[in-house]
Simulated scan of single mutants.
Amino acid sequence: MSNASTALLVGDGHGAEECARRALELVSSRPNRQRSTTVLGKASADLAMARLLSDDVEGASDLCRPCSQCQATSA
């Protein structure tokens, strides 16, 4: 379980958003071929949930669109 997920479980939307953003920054700093789509997807979902806790429905929705357009890739 990620730090962002833990923060969400205890209702800490601000902490969850900070942790999810940090995870996304770390993943994005890696070369494309070394980026974990699992971490990217989970951190994006955590960030969307954190935004929902803050009543930012549009912000959460914006984060979900790219994930729904992802194509499966084989390694």
Rank of each mutant, 00 (worst) to 15 (best):
M1L: 07
M1R: 05
S2T: 13
A4Q: 01
S5C: 00
T6W: 14
A7D: 03
L8G: 00
L8V: 01
V10Q: 14
G11Q: 07
G11M: 11
D12I: 04
G15M: 04
A16H: 05
E17V: 04
E17C: 03
E18R: 12
C19E: 15
A20R: 00
R21L: 10
A23Q: 06
L24R: 08
E25L: 12
L26V: 12
L26Q: 15
V27D: 06
S29V: 04
S29T: 08
Q34M: 12
Q34L: 12
V39P: 04
V39F: 00
L40R: 12
K42M: 11
S44M: 13
L47N: 03
L47C: 06
M49D: 02
L52K: 06
L53F: 06
L53H: 04
L53V: 05
S54Q: 15
S54N: 10
S54E: 14
D55M: 00
V57C: 00
E58S: 04
E58Q: 09
E58Y: 04
G59N: 10
G59I: 09
S61C: 12
S61N: 10
S61G: 07
D62A: 14
D62W: 11
L63S: 03
L63F: 10
C64L: 15
C64D: 03
R65Y: 09
R65G: 02
P66C: 11
P66N: 13
C67G: 06
C67N: 09
C67W: 11
S68Q: 09
S68V: 13
Q69E: 15
Q71R: 12
A72C: 04
T73P: 01
T73H: 06
T73W: 03
S74G: 00
